[in-house]
Design a binder for these strands. Structure first.
Lengths: 366, 366
DNA sequence: TTGTATGCGTTATCAC
DNA sequence: GTGATAACGCATACAA
């Protein structure tokens, strides 16, 4: 009843010495050839062929554990994702995976699920498993991750995506938040909006501060005045992961304040969705009565109705950069890696103009 | 300048024999004690204490590679996710991870990114890495995954989540699609809808057929007639992963057909969002002019405006079941595992009645 | 050009 | 109660 097996047979694993015996050569020669080691240059072509052949025939697969034990290498790159349920993280992760696919490095992904404790535990496990590089994929919602610097001390190349670690030794790559804030403002301004409400991120979040900087810079450039009464901050203690509840609540308070505004610039897409809900409940249509712009461009932004205008973070590009950075450093010696990073690598955001913003049709009640 | 390191020091890893030397006992005794092996019963309490202490003091961490090489165990469970960008998969994955957290098993997650080739490759890697159990998290969009059966032949406990593998040897857990279809219909019926349009999944997708069965069963029970002209099928060749484009296109065709309908029952949430977009573009409001119901309950369903009424798949429960199943089988001997599974484990769906469905206010134009 | 011998860090079987 | 000793499968320094 011997069905053909696609992968390997049920029998005992075949080892290096099995191949050696079957091919008539010694284990060392077999090892040299199969690993294409430098010394295999001196092995006769015939021998190589014979060995490769019998290895394939026997279905030889090296034992990863024995190999790693002996060589002290793992051929793995650790990817520590702060929250796999966050589409922002997921898209970055997939880009990294795609970059790693054609390389001999296997991504080992672990998901901290927003729990600092798990982050720490997994970080240790990464070291334990001898990952040769470490990429941390972070969302803004982030506790202290400075212990990542410790990893770098072990001479493991490290990079953080999506957040500025502000570390002199660990490289970071993230979106240019200031440019993003600037672009969002510019878009609303071009549509004729002058009375704009803001729902900023929690004060502790660096991203939010930088975006605000960009917003203010545009306002200065365009000679706009930002009304302090139209500014709200999400609170970090709302417990919720998403800014939806905050966006909803703060927009309600904005509406109830009676203050006039024709557009809302939200901290992120989920906050924007909260704002839209609040506007809708108050009978204001988006975008006819009020425009709304978000930040991130989560996958559903293009699919909702109205589609959400937003500032896209180039998750794909960011992931690619991180993977390339690690791959590059994997080849280098320790000394070569020593250059410090005072500044994070910033990626340009791109405005995705969609249905939730429209030209301001109301004359200004000045 | 010796900053204290949280995890380990920079120095060479400390090994078992380091601990042995420092504590004054032999490596074997140290191993026994540190592993709490059965034989450690006979070790003097004093000795145990001393060993545990020095191990802790030296910061000893067993070498996972040496350990696995010797013991032939990996203490890992493979989790093969068909697409990590699919929130459906992600939520299941996180539930699995949470179940595994308090156990000594480490989840090794790999992401096939919807590529059959990668699935196969990763499957091999899982075997190579000696995972002791395998959980496959599948979405409906699935090519042939029967090669997973091969894994089971290796006496690795295996379970598939989210899809019926229809295998006599591999257990499956998924939502009760028929009950889901039934519940969706019942909901629309209770709201007074009698002219209902359907956007079914691609014909090849088993889920869709079963849901349709449930829909028809309700129609029979309630004495409703389903108009054949109001039925559309998503095509599998649309290339796109999401049903959004299909939902948009098919709803347009539904509208253009001139046929009267007051509700749309969509294959899944993304299809529903496509339908909502089409309705909106045609000037029909949701839910006032037309109700829309989806299937899945992706995270954003509750956040969009209007919030999407949908049939929730219990992703959390499904993941938990899968993890528990694997954990249970990891304890068992090969013989005990031998019981075949003719039927998949079905989880009850739950109706999430939200803003995209409402009572039918239009009298029937009979 | 190829083979022999050794050790990576563990665990497990014995003997003391 | 505890300590030698071997073996897991592989890679490499060195010998031939």
């Amino acid at each position: 009843m011997g069905k053909t097996r696609t992968i390997v047979s049920n029998r005992r694993r075949v080892t290096l010495s099995d191949v050696a015996r079957a091919s008539g050569f010694s284990p060392s020669t077999v090892s040299l050839v199969l690993n294409k080691a430098p010394l295999s240059r001196y092995v006769a072509a015939k021998t190589k062929e014979k060995i490769t052949e019998t290895a394939a025939h026997l279905g030889y697969r090296p034992d990863v554990f024995a190999r790693s034990l002996r060589s002290k290498r793992s051929h793995t790159v650790g990817i520590l994702v702060i929250d796999l349920a966050d589409p922002f993280c997921t898209l970055i992760l997939q880009a990294i995976e795609r970059k790693l696919l054609p390389t001999p490095y296997l991504p080992i992904v672990m998901d901290a699920q927003n729990e600092p404790q798990q982050l720490e535990r997994y970080l240790e496990m990464m070291v334990e498993r001898r990952v040769e590089g470490l990429i941390t994929v972070a969302n803004w919602l982030l506790f202290d991750i400075t212990l990542i610097e410790d990893i770098d001390d072990r001479r493991i190349p490290t990079v953080v995506v999506g957040r500025d670690l502000e570390s002199p030794t660990v490289n970071s790559v993230l979106v240019d938040n200031e440019a993003g804030g600037y672009a969002a403002m510019q878009h609303l301004h071009e549509l004729g909006h002058r009375d704009i409400a803001f729902i900023r991120g929690p004060r502790e979040v660096g991203d939010s501060r930088i975006r605000w900087k960009g917003i203010r810079r545009f306002a200065r450039d365009a000679g706009m005045r930002l009304s302090p009464t139209l500014i709200r901050d999400l609170s970090n203690t709302m417990g919720s992961i998403s800014g939806f509840d905050g966006g909803l609540r703060l927009t309600k308070s904005l509406i109830e304040s009676g203050e006039r505004f024709t557009a809302i610039l939200a901290f992120d897409d989920l906050t924007a969705y909260g704002a839209i809900r609040a506007l809708s409940e108050a009978g204001r249509r988006v975008p006819e009565d009020c425009s709304v712009i978000g930040f991130d461009d989560i996958p559903v932004a293009a699919l909702s109705t109205p589609a959400l205008t937003t500032i896209q973070q180039p998750m794909g590009k960011m992931g690619e950069y991180a993977a390339e950075y690690i791959l590059k450093h994997l080849e280098q010696s320790e000394e070569e890696r020593a250059q410090p990073y005072s500044d994070p690598h910033l990626m340009p955001p791109v405005l995705m103009a969609r249905g939730s913003t429209a030209r301001n049709m109301k004359s200004r009640g000045k």
